[in-house]
Amino acid sequence: MSNELYTLDAEVRSDLGTGASRRLRRADKVPAVLYGAEKEAVSLTLAHNKVIKAQEDEGFYSHILTLNIGGEKVEAILKDIQRHPFKPKVMHLDFQRVDANHKIHTKVPVHFINEEAATKGGNTVAHLVTEIEITCLPAQLPEFIEVDVAALEVGATLHLSDIALPAGVVSVELAKGADHDQAVVTLNAPKGAASEEASEDAAE
């Protein structure tokens, strides 16, 4: 995703309410709100075509974005996106301001690598999570977290505690205690392999 897609032009809107939002959407605009950093929330409007193009890229959901609001550039992260139930249309966006000195709480996608090595012989990799909830300073925010499954043995599972997070990045779940050590990925034997082993054991 290019830096151009990380920057979105926005306008402050004063016409609020359900009816106003409906009129904006008919005009190919997306209503949004910007809040956080101990400042008042601001209602915004963004061009729908720009939002549609940006939200197609994974980085839109985890990268620090720049909102150009009337010439003032504000750094923010996307906190929520509401889509139409069946049309390719974004209905509303929630942005949270970013303060360089305050930690942010967000989710980042997981990228599983070296699956080709793990799946030799018909093994299958089961992704148990697709994103990890983290806290960190804005400058330490990763676009994604890599999980290497090359050395994963059949039947084994990697948990959050097995994942090497970047410096300064903390897992929200692990911070709650060992009972929250979520399973992330499992390597399963080929289908039928377990039943074949059981049959062999029974025959012996």
Rank of each mutant, 00 (worst) to 15 (best):
I134F: 00
A10L: 06
A151G: 02
E204F: 09
E153R: 12
I77M: 12
Q55Y: 09
V33S: 12
A167P: 02
N188P: 05
M1R: 11
D9M: 01
T186W: 07
A27D: 11
C136E: 03
V149K: 02
Y35T: 06
T130M: 08
A202P: 02
P88T: 09
D28C: 05
L34A: 13
T130C: 01
R22N: 09
L158H: 06
A118H: 12
L128A: 07
A189D: 04
E173R: 15
N3T: 08
I81C: 10
F95Q: 06
S2H: 10
T66L: 01
F86G: 08
F112L: 14
P109D: 07
A198W: 12
A126V: 13
K29H: 06
S43D: 05
S14Y: 15
R13A: 03
Q96S: 08
H127I: 02
R26C: 01
V125I: 14
V169P: 03
V33Y: 10
F95L: 11
A156F: 08
V172K: 06
A139N: 12
K79Q: 15
R97D: 13
V125G: 00
N114A: 11
G36Q: 04
L24H: 05
A167L: 11
A178M: 10
L174N: 01
P138A: 01
E197V: 12
K29I: 06
H105Q: 14
L128K: 13
P109M: 10
E173S: 15
T18P: 01
A41H: 03
R25Q: 13
A139M: 08
D9G: 01
L93N: 06
T186A: 08
V12T: 11
N101A: 15
V90Q: 05
V185G: 07
S199A: 15
A54E: 03
E196V: 07
N3S: 07
L160R: 08
G192V: 02
K89N: 14
L152K: 01
A151N: 10
E131P: 01
I163Y: 05
K120L: 15
V108S: 06
R97P: 14
A175T: 09
L187R: 15
L5F: 12
C136R: 03
R26L: 11
V42N: 00
L65Y: 01
V125W: 03
L34F: 14
G168C: 04
I69A: 01
E196K: 15
L44P: 03
M91V: 14
K73G: 00
I145E: 02
P31C: 09
I77E: 12
L141I: 04
V98A: 03
E4T: 11
E131F: 04
H159I: 02
T124A: 10
G17S: 03
